[in-house]
Simulated scan of single mutants.
Amino acid sequence: MRCPSRRTNVRLGRLGSVSQTVLLAEDDRAIRHALERALTLEGYRVTAVADGVEALAQAHTSPPDVLVLDVMMPGIDGLQVCRVLRAEGDRTPILMLTALVETQDRIAGLDAGADDYVVKPFDVEEVFARLRALLRRTGQAGAAADVPKPEEAPEQAPERALEAAGLRLDPQARRAWRGERELELTRTEFELMELLVRNAGIVLDHATIYDRIWGYDFGPGSKNLAVYVGYLRRKLDEPGAPPLIHTVRGVGYVLRED
């Protein structure tokens, strides 16, 4: 883990005005303490534990705004914690910390219900960026910015279902179908699919997708988007049917029926 410099820490301590709660589970003491300190300086209220058993206990007694889970922990690991919380219907955003770099290992985390991951060794600024993106997507970051709320929001008509390329989405219920088959999607998978459906036939470049889904462009070296697209394809594609998500090499992705 690469922590901010002393100068950066001072800056974060002054400007950090967020008050979201973070549950951090990491069995490596040095990493746990360093990340706990960095998150605290950034303005988060942090509860740090050393294993999955403690993480589940804390999540049940004091639900956090976001969880940061190490994948490899003794006893109950991060993937198991993630599966238990999702099975209980807990949709709290989860960021996984992992030293496993193979695509299948990352897919295992997404399959368990994680929303994002950071590969070790990581720069703490990347952790901050991914946490901000997760909290923005769940509506938590607005409170951190102290944005005044309107006294009374105007009523809006329910949004109609979206349809394209044989896919149908209900944005309000966050449900999706291919034909008559309902798809079981994670939060990030649904948001990616919704973005593609809303822009069916339009090639979306990597930077645009990163900005719309994660709120942050992780650069050309990141495989985050490719992993999510691959996982979404596995859920969308059907034997004998044409693929719906197409790669435009060097540019991005497009949803269309060929």
Results as ranks from 00 to 15, higher is better:
142 G>W: 00
148 P>F: 02
133 A>P: 05
148 P>E: 14
156 Q>D: 07
140 Q>K: 11
153 A>G: 03
151 E>F: 12
125 E>F: 08
129 A>L: 07
152 E>C: 08
157 A>R: 11
111 D>E: 15
136 R>F: 06
104 Q>K: 13
140 Q>L: 13
120 K>N: 04
146 D>R: 07
148 P>V: 11
161 A>K: 12
135 L>W: 09
111 D>G: 05
134 L>E: 02
107 I>L: 15
125 E>S: 14
134 L>V: 03
150 P>M: 08
111 D>M: 04
109 G>M: 06
153 A>W: 08
154 P>R: 09
114 A>E: 06
105 D>W: 02
141 A>M: 11
135 L>H: 01
152 E>K: 09
129 A>R: 05
113 G>P: 04
111 D>N: 13
110 L>P: 00
105 D>H: 14
135 L>T: 04
130 R>H: 01
135 L>Q: 09
130 R>A: 07
137 R>D: 07
115 D>M: 04
149 K>Y: 00
160 R>A: 15
133 A>K: 01
142 G>P: 00
120 K>P: 05
150 P>I: 11
135 L>N: 03
139 G>R: 02
153 A>F: 07
106 R>Q: 13
112 A>V: 08
138 T>P: 01
130 R>W: 03
141 A>C: 00
106 R>I: 15
151 E>R: 11
141 A>H: 05
154 P>Y: 03
106 R>L: 15
157 A>N: 05
160 R>L: 14
124 V>R: 00
107 I>E: 13
139 G>T: 05
153 A>H: 03
111 D>H: 06
123 D>W: 01
131 L>W: 00
160 R>H: 07
132 R>L: 03
136 R>T: 13
142 G>Q: 08
109 G>R: 05
161 A>E: 15
144 A>P: 02
160 R>Y: 00
115 D>K: 02
111 D>Q: 14
107 I>K: 04
129 A>S: 09
122 F>M: 11
156 Q>L: 14
109 G>L: 09
144 A>M: 11
121 P>C: 06
156 Q>S: 10
161 A>C: 13
150 P>E: 11
152 E>D: 11
156 Q>V: 12
105 D>F: 05
159 E>A: 15
107 I>A: 07
116 D>W: 01
151 E>I: 13
104 Q>T: 15
124 V>Q: 13
124 V>T: 15
158 P>S: 09
120 K>M: 08
156 Q>C: 04
146 D>A: 14
151 E>T: 13
142 G>C: 03
115 D>N: 14
116 D>N: 11
109 G>K: 08
117 Y>I: 11
113 G>N: 05
129 A>K: 01
